[in-house]
Every structure is written in C-alpha cells, then in structure tokens.
C-alpha cells in the first residue's frame, strides 16, 4: 500500500442537537485507497472501574464516513469518552480521543416546529417529531385583554393535538417549547403563532 504508518484521525468534534449526537473528524486521505474508521466509547463507570475496556459504537465499527451517529450508544446522563482510529487493510492508526468528554445534558435544544390548524371550530396543533425523549409544553390563549393562558403537556408521538373549541370572530395564539426529562432541560419557546377564526363574533 505504500503507506508505512497510517495517520490518526484529527479534529474530533461532537455536534449534539435535540438529543442526536454526532461525532465528526477530519478524513484521513490516502490517494486511491478506502479508509475505514472505528469508533469506541466509555461511560463514566468504565472510565472509573474498567478503564482498559472500550465499547465499539453501534453503527461505526467500522464506517467509511468521517462521522458517526452515537445517539444509541449514549444511554445515561454521565460523561462519555470517545475515540476513533483509521484502518487501511492491515494497517491501523493510533487512536484519537475526543478532547473533552461528552455528556448528553449539553445537547442544544431548539424551539419546536409547529403548525396551527383549524378543524371546524377545533384549534389543533401539529408538532415536530423529535423522538422519544421529547415532551412538548404548549401554551395557548385567546387574544384579548386579560385572557388566561392555558398549558397542555404533549407526550411524544401524539399528533395532531386538540387544544380548544374556539368562537367565531375571535383570535387565538399558541407557542410551544420542548422538555427532555433525561436531562431535565427545556428548549426556548417557538415563535408565537396566532389564528383568526372565521365568522361573526357572537353577541355578548
């Protein structure tokens, strides 16, 4: 192969958004050769009690792409060590270890996408499916002075959600945010969306 020593992958980095965790690194380039990578991890328990043992990641032992979705391997809210090495035939590089341990409680939580719809006089909301970790707190109110704000907790997978029976001529507003129990954190609120109900306002 003309390669005496295979360089170790560089620039390891973690991108974690909405509890989806992806490890990336700079590809190892050997002209006209296919490089494969293997990713391994250790939780806090392993680091403390069995530090010689590393666990192969579910999807990237091996992989040809310079990235690895380790979401399924992160199954506790502890800090994890991650490492990668390159392989070319019988040649293997040294391991490169992620500089800072990763904990899922550092994931970036984005405001949820949502769509407000009407079904007759029923106000409905459809929420972005972010996976089993996510609950949604939906706040809704009638747009008038002194209106009371209501909140509804939506569990994963329940779509669309009935919010309220509305009155003709009135306007209603909705905003939502996510909550992840595994890490005890909320996202920021989505933009507030308002809808005007068709028809004449009912006489008082």
């Amino acid at each position: 192969d003309g390669v005496a020593v295979l360089p170790a992958p560089q620039n390891l980095s973690m991108q974690s958004t909405n509890m989806k965790h992806v490890l990336t690194w700079s590809p190892v380039i050997v002209p006209e050769e296919i490089i494969r990578y293997s990713v391994e991890y250790q939780g806090e328990y392993e680091s403390l009690y069995t530090s010689h043992i590393w666990i192969p990641s579910s999807w990237c032992s091996p992989t040809q792409r310079p990235e690895c979705d380790i979401t399924e391997d992160i199954t506790a809210t502890v800090s994890y060590s991650l490492r990668v090495r390159a392989t070319l035939g019988s040649l293997t590089s040294a391991w490169s270890t992620l500089k800072h341990r990763f904990n899922q409680n550092s994931t970036i939580l984005t405001p949820p996408g949502m769509e407000i719809t009407m079904d007759g006089f029923h106000l409905l909301i459809k929420l972005e499916d972010l996976g089993p970790h996510f609950e949604f707190f939906v706040f809704y109110w009638r747009r008038e002075p002194g209106a009371k704000e209501h909140v509804k907790v939506v569990r994963p997978g329940v779509l669309p959600v009935y919010l309220e029976t509305v009155e003709p001529g009135a306007a209603y507003c909705v905003k939502a945010r996510t909550f992840v129990k595994a890490i005890g954190r909320h996202s920021a609120f989505s933009r507030t969306e308002c809808v005007k109900v068709q028809g004449e306002a009912l006489p008082l």
Partner: peptide, 14 residues
C-alpha cells in the same frame, strides 16, 4: 453484552 452492561452500570452510577 457490554452495551447492556454499560447502560445499567452508568445509570446505577448516576
């Protein structure tokens, strides 16, 4: 069964 072992060990640790 290292994966299952790791899940339980790390969560018990927490």
């Amino acid at each position: 069964i290292l994966k299952s072992f790791s899940t339980l060990a790390n969560n018990f640790f927490v």
